[in-house]
Amino acid sequence: MPPKPKPTTRDSSFSIFKPGTLVEVSSNDVGFRGSWYTGTVIRRASKKDPAKYLIEYTHLFSDEAGTKPLREIIDLGQLRPVAPREKKREFKFSEEVDAFYNDGWWEGAITGASDGKFKVYFRSSKEQIEFSKEDLRLHREWLGGDKWKPPLEEEEEEEEEENGKVSTEGKTMENDKAVTELKFEKGASVEVSSDEDGFDGAWFAATVIEPVGKDKYLVEYQSLRTEDDTEFLKEEIDILHIRPSPPDTVVVDSFDRLDEVDALYNDGWWIGVISKVLSNSRYKVYFKNTLEEMQFEHSELRLHQEWIDGKWIVTRQGLTCDR
């Protein structure tokens, strides 16, 4: 993909991150994408480069004894205020959340509940881990200033309680479901992911040729070709990196800003977020994994979906569609 652009500095952000401010820090290091760690702003790191800050982490330490908090110089584009949390929240099936794990907040999706515990699926690591409600919060994107998407629901809930009109709609979760065992037949259309550096967050269309051993399939890509360009590339793929082809989710009018989408680029579908709606059905898409922003036509985008426990989860409206 193209070279990474430098983060855009905003004067309003400088005024927010004053010394002593509690913040959250993101990382683009392999294995840490999609996570946020709390820390405190110590000061600007350099007068020559005002877009860098010295941060002291809250839960990360530079010594094994855990007595010396880790300090690190961070780019402005990796900082945001601490994400807000409702005092009370009933999490719903397929809802996007942040789970507190390994001293940081990790982005995932609710896939089940049992005995007061919640199962969360992490797209980046393809893991499913169980958490208590206290270790979860609704996933939010910072829009700048004090604005978040989705906004804090606490005030609205308090008003409903005062009026005696607290709604229970959507506050029940589906029964916990066992992970569906996937089996693909010869000729099935699938999509394949890769753990190789530079391909994180991408899915490539392929066709199943045959199973090869336990939990592996030989597939033929529909757009990737061999080095000599004589035929389509064939490869043995572990079942953890294969999913059915997602159903069509047609967006007739237009995508909205902050919609999570897949963008068709370099023969694959790459996960990104609509950062700006342009004219003539064009959009700018921001890729969190690479800090890149690129322009796409409407026809080159589709709503992002996750295949979890035998269901397709459409992230635009939290909908699920059975497959």
Rank of each mutant, 00 (worst) to 15 (best):
Pro2Met: 09
Pro3Trp: 08
Pro7His: 06
Arg10Asp: 00
Phe17Ala: 11
Leu22Ser: 04
Val25Arg: 03
Ser27Gln: 04
Gly31Asn: 05
Gly39Pro: 07
Arg44Asp: 00
Ala45Ile: 12
Ser46Glu: 03
Lys47Asn: 05
Tyr57Gln: 07
Tyr57Ser: 06
His59Lys: 12
Ser62Pro: 01
Gly66Leu: 13
Leu70Gln: 08
Ile73Val: 15
Ile74Asp: 00
Asp75Val: 15
Leu79Ala: 07
Arg80Thr: 04
Arg85Ser: 09
Glu86Lys: 15
Lys87Tyr: 05
Lys87Ile: 11
Glu95Asn: 07
Ala99Asp: 02
Tyr101Met: 09
Glu107Tyr: 07
Thr111Cys: 15
Gly112Leu: 10
Ala113His: 13
Lys117Met: 11
Lys119Ser: 04
Ile129Trp: 02
Ile129Ala: 02
Asp135Asn: 12
Gly144Phe: 02
Asp146Trp: 03
Lys147Tyr: 03
Glu155Cys: 09
Glu162Ala: 13
Lys165Glu: 02
Lys171Tyr: 04
Lys171Ile: 07
Asn175Ser: 05
Phe184Asn: 01
Glu185Asp: 09
Gly187Glu: 02
Asp195Val: 12
Glu196Phe: 13
Glu196His: 15
Asp200Thr: 15
Ala202His: 08
Trp203Leu: 13
Phe204Trp: 05
Thr207Glu: 03
Glu210Trp: 14
Gly213Ser: 08
Asp215Glu: 11
Gln222Thr: 14
Leu224Thr: 06
Arg225Cys: 08
Thr226Ile: 05
Glu231Ile: 13
Leu233Asp: 00
Arg243Lys: 13
Pro246Cys: 04
Pro247Cys: 04
Val251Tyr: 00
Glu260Ala: 08
Ser275His: 02
Lys276Val: 13
Val277Thr: 06
Ser279Gln: 09
Ser281Phe: 13
Arg282Trp: 01
Phe287Cys: 03
Phe287Tyr: 07
Gln295Arg: 14
Gln295His: 08
Ser299Asp: 04
Gly310Trp: 09
Arg316Asp: 02
Arg316Lys: 14
Leu319His: 02
Asp322Ile: 10
